[in-house]
Design a binder for these strands. Sequence first.
DNA 1: CCAACTGTACTAAGCATCATAGTACAGATG
DNA 2: CATCTGTACTATGATGCTTAGTACAGTTGG
Lengths: 128, 128
Amino acid sequence: MFQIDALSRVPVYEQLVDQMEKLVLSGLLKAGDPMPSVRSLSLDLLINPNTIQKAYSELDRRGILMSVPGKGCFVAETATEVIRKKIRDKSSDLIELVKDMKLAGAELEELLALVRSAYEGNKEVCER
Amino acid sequence: MFQIDALSRVPVYEQLVDQMEKLVLSGLLKAGDPMPSVRSLSLDLLINPNTIQKAYSELDRRGILMSVPGKGCFVAETATEVIRKKIRDKSSDLIELVKDMKLAGAELEELLALVRSAYEGNKEVCER
DNA sequence: CCAACTGTACTAAGCATCATAGTACAGATG
DNA sequence: CATCTGTACTATGATGCTTAGTACAGTTGG
């Protein structure tokens, strides 16, 4: 369910949060769905329970997850809404990136084509 | 010449490297140009000399800067070439971003317009 | 009821990175 | 020769990430 890259400079708990958001946006997780318990996910990923807890509490704080003591954690009703708002605010990141690549010599048409193929999911252009 | 954001999560020496790259790409710094000495820039920015040195040695390692013991540091001949290569490799970042924003509900036309205005330098659309 | 699960809280330790402080040495220069 | 230059080194403090271990309260199925 989750893929952790131990070599990444991104903290493990942050990787969990990011992947959780994508699972919700892609529809694999819906409001009300139960999440693995802190301890079971800990055993599954070979990660300390405290680290899982840190990710879960962060997701709870953002309104993406509902923690119910004694019962478990569930995808919150507001999850999709919250995540969409956050990600759409990334337009400033996109602007930054485009400006950098323009400075580096990228042509406008080149960038537009890149966006189109990424949006359409063109496998031949996507890297990695 | 350099603007350091002490509150940023990005390390100071990394901010220096990033800004140095942009100064070269924008043409404000050209091959052979002298850089401020480690100590003078340290006094100017109120940053420890070791931190400046860390940025300079990283820029030297990348082929963006030439360090000459006893004389000073100068913009390397390969600077522009090296930086352009690096930044143009950011196309995978752009692809990631577009995919995320698509999942979040952004329309293709919306993204294309964003790229165009960022490329043209439209002040009314650029944020911050 | 109770054993086994759930989330949660807490302390302690190890580790890495960043930044600072201070000292030192060799090369270049006017 | 004084003063600049880059460079190297040790030591220290602060912060963040992760692990380890313990503990407590709520929930649930047998």
